[in-house]
């Protein structure tokens, strides 16, 4: 296969970026999208061009490192699939592909397709946990948890923190990410004591990180490689409202 790639190149956080076009031949349909970029990078280096920087690691769709906008869609055209698991058999010979980084104020570009997603870590720091120090835990089977409940918690817990939801959202909101964690913990009995504080604190941090607000476009869930549903957002909304109405101090 032959492809024409238009890729965002930006030397550093403060440099101006631009799109650069590359032609690639010898693309095999069995290659993954990142392997296609690997091959392009090999060619670039041999002809003396600095290779394209992109985040990637596990290449199994679970670490959440890889992140790029492909033809205007986070992670590319295949639903429920990260870039590393997207294969070239989904493209036609001769296709033109536009590749650019996640764009959001909260995700500044570091270089080329690499962005800083530290904001997501800081949202977790604000309350995305159950406070249990090592050694404090009661017997694991002490609290039975219904299978349905744990399955729903697991659906939300699958989030890989890639940031596709932010990238897809017309408001650049991190609501799906935040809500997925709040829902995962909020559905489980262990997560109840901190549920209100968690909702308020995580939302406050999310807002401080300069993400936009959620207005229910629904693009996030569609872009999510782990199919996390909009239901989690409704839950966080409700938790936040209840926390405001119920909590006695500082909310």
């Amino acid at each position: 296969m032959k492809l024409r790639l238009k890729i965002w190149r930006q030397q550093g956080p403060h440099a101006a970026g631009e799109f650069v076009s590359y032609e690639t031949a010898d693309v095999s349909p069995d290659m993954s999208f990142l392997e296609m970029l690997d091959v392009l990078n090999e060619t670039l280096q041999l002809r003396g061009d600095v290779p394209i920087a992109f985040d990637h690691d596990c290449r199994e769709g679970i670490c959440g490192s890889c992140a790029m906008m492909i033809d205007g869609v986070p992670h590319g055209p295949q639903k429920s699939t990260t870039v590393c698991q997207l294969h070239m058999r989904h493209y036609r010979d001769g296709a033109t592909i536009v590749i650019e980084p996640w764009r959001a104020k909260a995700f500044p570009v570091i270089r080329d397709l690499v962005v800083d997603r530290g904001a997501l870590d800081r949202i977790i720091q604000a309350g995305g946990y159950i406070s249990v120090a090592t050694g404090n835990a009661p017997e694991a089977n002490g609290i039975p948890i219904g299978k349905d409940m744990v399955d729903r918690a697991m659906d939300a817990a699958q989030c890989i923190g890639c940031g596709a939801c932010v990238a897809a959202c017309p408001n650049a909101s991190a609501m799906l990410f935040t809500a997925a964690k709040a829902t995962h913990l909020g559905l489980l009995p262990q997560g109840q004591p901190e549920r209100s504080h968690r909702a308020v604190n995580m939302v406050r941090q999310m807002d401080l990180e300069t993400f936009g607000g959620c207005t229910n476009f629904g693009e996030c869930s569609e872009a999510c490689p782990k199919d996390i549903g909009l239901e989690v957002i409704a839950r966080l909304n409700a938790d936040f409202l209840q926390a405001t109405l119920k909590e006695r101090e500082g909310a």
Binding site: W8, G72, K105, P170, N171, G212, E219
Partner: peptide
Amino acid sequence: LAQQARPSRYAKHATQAS
């Protein structure tokens, strides 16, 4: 807030679900 949250726009942005 939404405008501030995405100061530079995508060259190509396809809406999928909205």
